[in-house]
């Protein structure tokens, strides 16, 4: 549904996007992650036809955004630095966009209710809090009832309840078969929401896979203790895992605790401890985007 191919964008001396490629399939919520300045916003703006790439392709539903028949009703977007006229009431902001984007006028009140702003619909946006603005931005993305959603740091400014609401909401959208691409520089924010993550750093792809796959990455280790350590070590080595001793316990590299537990059970070995190490996604993320790796 979303396809980015060998995309490049340079701002003066900064190579903001540097040969980036990835795809997003329908019904998937994909986290688009990277540290500050990684090129997330630039990539999303190119996808939406707001920024011109130097080379490469960025298409949605097989077409460039501006080539879509009814772009506003096919793709919804929330972008950083996308604004509101402070003197315009929220409801009017949406009416203006609905008219321009060919969305039915009745959607305005529907999306206001969806994001929980019906009570503040007649207030001028200048008096809105950051979280309310974020909800209004989300409402405008939903106006056209689009099948594809592109959200740049949508959780910014939301309170914990709002973040939780957003998470459930995105899951329900994906369950309806929509594709969602959601950027963040804080992994924990999207960890529970996304099916897959695309991690970029300095404009380049660092990793793309399911959350599970990434957690199982090369630094995934399991600490296991057993009164029958010798036998367990043999069984694990036979299964192809690299095992090292760590005091009383064993460290198993490249395995999940489930795998280790199953091997132990199949040989009726007793376990006293089974702890996954360094499998916090945050660590994987930091590791993947740290200086040495690039």
């Amino acid at each position: 549904m979303i396809a980015v191919e060998d995309l490049r964008k340079r701002y003066g001396k900064t190579q903001a996007v540097d040969g980036l490629s990835f795809t997003v399939e329908p019904g998937r919520v994909v986290g688009f992650l990277g540290p500050n300045g990684a090129g997330k916003t630039t990539t999303l703006r190119i996808l939406l036809g707001l920024v011109h790439a130097n080379s490469g392709q960025a298409t949605i539903l097989g077409k460039r955004y501006s080539q879509l028949e009814r772009p506003f009703c096919q793709v919804g977007a929330v972008l950083e630095a996308s604004g509101f006229h402070p003197g315009r009431k929220a409801r009017n902001h949406l009416r203006v966009l609905a008219r321009a984007g060919h969305a039915p006028a009745k959607r305005v009140d529907e999306v206001l209710a969806t994001v929980g702003l019906e009570g503040a619909a007649k207030k001028r946006v200048g008096g809105y809090s950051l979280g309310m603005r974020q909800r209004l931005a989300l409402a405008s993305a939903l106006l056209g009832d689009p099948g594809v959603l592109i959200l740049d740091e949508p959780a910014n400014g939301l309170d914990p309840e709002g973040i939780r609401w957003l998470r459930d909401f995105l899951r329900s959208l994906a369950a309806e078969g929509r594709a969602v691409l959601i950027s963040s520089h804080v992994l924990s924010e999207v960890e529970q929401t996304v099916d897959e993550v695309v991690i970029i750093n300095k404009g380049k792809l660092v990793a793309h896979g399911s959350v599970e796959e990434l957690k199982r990455g090369k630094d995934g280790r399991v600490r296991v203790a057993s009164p029958q350590a010798k036998a367990l070590e043999e069984k694990l080595a036979k299964a192809g895992f690299v095992v090292t001793e760590d005091g009383e316990a064993l460290l198993v590299a490249g395995a999940t605790s489930a795998q280790v537990g199953e091997i132990a059970a199949s040989s009726s070995l007793v376990l006293h401890e089974l702890t996954p190490l360094a499998t916090q996604l945050e660590d994987v993320f930091l590791d993947l985007t740290s200086e040495e790796k690039t």
Partner: peptide, 18 residues
């Protein structure tokens, strides 16, 4: 200029890419 000043140019262009 209000579109650029308030950043509404982004939603405006999304709704009307031409």
């Amino acid at each position: 200029t209000g579109e650029f000043r308030h950043g509404t140019i982004t939603p405006t262009l999304l709704a009307t890419p031409s």
